[in-house]
């Protein structure tokens, strides 16, 4: 697995070699903070928590992670560099994992850069730092699962627009399954247990506990296994 290092490095630094990374970071920060302030009424709530900030992450990720992940494999296919990558002495799994980890590290940087939000809350009040920490963990884990889906979709096509649209659609489904409005709708038409099973596949259902300070192993397992599964399909899609 030492083969992972060069590709990871190239890929991660690659983000910063083009303006795309900086544009992405600025948009990400503005959207994350903007949603919390304007939709989440961050200040009006009068509480020293970041809940109104984290509650939007599943929605924010819905568009921003496909935007970051759409080029992952599509670009390699379009420019032909995939031929270079797959004639270097590394396995498909190693290539998939190293590119995935680089993109995930980049997203984690973006998420970590919102930390001034936490500092603001800490300055204005007396927040529960444990909850803030678990919320960040949950957010990064969830970002990983979104990215797994996006990486898989981008391996299916050399067209970045198609890759983006497919990713948004699949992520939207995974998101909607746990959205309360949609859930009530499901429960009205489906037997309770089926609605529950479906809701169990949602990002929101598994993310919410983190924002309340709870690390439930089953939520961690959900995100990790969803990521693992999409990466497995990613390898299959590339070897086909």
């Amino acid at each position: 697995m030492t083969h992972v290092i060069p590709v990871f490095k190239r890929e991660f630094l690659g983000y910063f070699r083009s303006p795309v990374a900086y544009v992405f970071l600025v948009v990400f920060l503005m959207a994350a903070v903007g949603l919390a302030f304007f939709l989440g009424r961050f200040f009006d709530a009068g509480q020293a928590t970041l809940e109104s900030f984290f509650v939007f992450h599943p929605w924010l990720f819905l568009f921003l992670i496909p935007a970051a992940g759409m080029r992952l494999w599509s670009e390699e296919k379009r420019t032909g560099t995939i031929e270079l990558l797959f004639t270097l002495p590394l396995t498909t799994l190693e290539a998939v994992v190293s590119k995935y980890l680089a993109a995930w590290a980049f997203l984690c940087v973006a998420i970590a850069l919102t930390f001034p939000m936490a500092l603001t809350v800490g300055y204005l009040g007396d927040p529960d730092w444990g909850i803030i920490l678990t919320s960040y963990m949950g957010s990064m884990l969830m970002a990983g699962s979104y990215l797994g889906v996006c990486s898989l979709m981008s391996a299916l096509t050399k067209n970045q627009v198609i890759s983006f649209v497919l990713s948004v659609i699949v992520c939207l489904i995974l998101l909607f399954l746990g959205w309360s409005v949609f859930n009530e709708l499901l429960e009205a038409y489906l037997p309770q247990f089926l609605a529950d099973v479906l809701a169990n596949f949602s990002f929101i259902t598994h993310f919410e506990p983190f924002t309340k300070g709870i690390i439930d192993p089953s939520d961690v397992v959900f995100f990790l296994s969803l990521t693992g599964f999409t990466l497995f399909l990613n390898v299959v899609a590339l070897e086909r």
Binding site: H3, P6, K9, G80, T81, T87
Partner: peptide, 26 residues
């Protein structure tokens, strides 16, 4: 292997690119 039309990662400098290839080759 030199693929047809010599694809390479365009945003890298020649040196960075060759160093990446060297590293990948051990």
């Amino acid at each position: 292997y030199l693929p047809e039309s010599a694809p390479a990662y365009g945003e890298m400098t020649v040196l960075e690119f060759l160093e990446f290839i060297a590293e990948s080759r051990g």
